[in-house]
């Protein structure tokens, strides 16, 4: 099974070749926060060290969209794959001929429920080859739609906000105050802890890697969910 290391852009800045040992690819960016665009320098270093560089992308506003598009255009040669969650950004990626795409965890939540014929047509037209999954039903949906299953162990996505919980604003620019921080949140009513990383809430992964998984996404030891 292919192994991918998922790093936040902040971790990507600091990751040396040693951290990437044993992985087939490295993924950075964010599926949830539009402000977590990696630097070109980190992207080049990671691509050089890991061989395969995967960019994770979130839902985004017009103000953020331009930056993500520029990043893809400028670093096109470095990119082995892009994980997409935004319908509009998927349209942009379609113009980048030959670029391999994976449907992100948010987009998979939609594709899993949409009419299969429409979803398969969308997947074909956008060169989507994989689906990111953190729940068995999403892994099953990815398989059903003919996508390779990319399994996220560790944590399950639960909710996302656009109002930065660390800096209290909606801006498409920030001071990265969330860097390296994961908040463990406990309320007895909920029955399980939540973990806040960047602008998204997660719970601990309790499901085993599905048999259909062709790739597994790992976080660095002791690291939070996003």
């Amino acid at each position: 099974m292919e192994k991918v290391l998922l790093l936040s852009p902040w971790q990507a800045e600091q990751a040396g070749p040693k951290a990437l040992a044993g992985f087939d690819a490295v993924m950075t960016g964010s599926e949830f926060c539009q402000n977590e665009l990696p630097s070109a320098k980190a992207a080049a270093a990671l691509a050089g060290a890991a061989g395969n560089f995967i960019l994770a992308t979130p839902l985004m506003t017009d103000k953020a969209l331009g930056g993500w598009e520029r990043f893809v255009r400028k670093n096109r040669s470095l990119l082995a794959e892009v994980v997409v969650n935004d319908w509009g950004f998927a349209g942009f990626l379609r113009t980048q001929r030959g670029l391999k795409i994976s449907a992100g965890r948010l987009m998979m939540r939609e594709l899993a429920l949409l009419a299969p014929a429409w979803a398969k047509d969308f997947i074909r037209r956008h060169n989507i080859l994989r689906g990111e999954a953190d729940r068995p039903d999403l892994a099953e949906a990815a398989k059903r739609l003919g996508l390779g299953v990319s399994w996220h162990g560790g944590y399950v996505f639960r909710a996302v906000t656009t109002y930065c919980p660390f800096e209290n604003h909606f801006r498409a620019a920030c001071a990265l105050s969330c860097a390296g921080r994961t908040l463990k949140l406990t309320n007895r009513q909920l029955g399980q802890d939540l973990f806040l990383a960047a602008n998204a809430y997660f719970s601990k992964q309790t499901k085993k890697v599905p048999a259909s998984a062709a790739r597994q996404v790992f976080r660095p030891a002791g690291s939070g969910p996003a």
Binding site: M60, D62, L65, W87, A90
Partner: peptide, 9 residues
């Protein structure tokens, strides 16, 4: 959230 997504719909 953005005009490209609006175009899609």
């Amino acid at each position: 959230f953005n005009s490209k997504t609006l175009g899609f719909f």
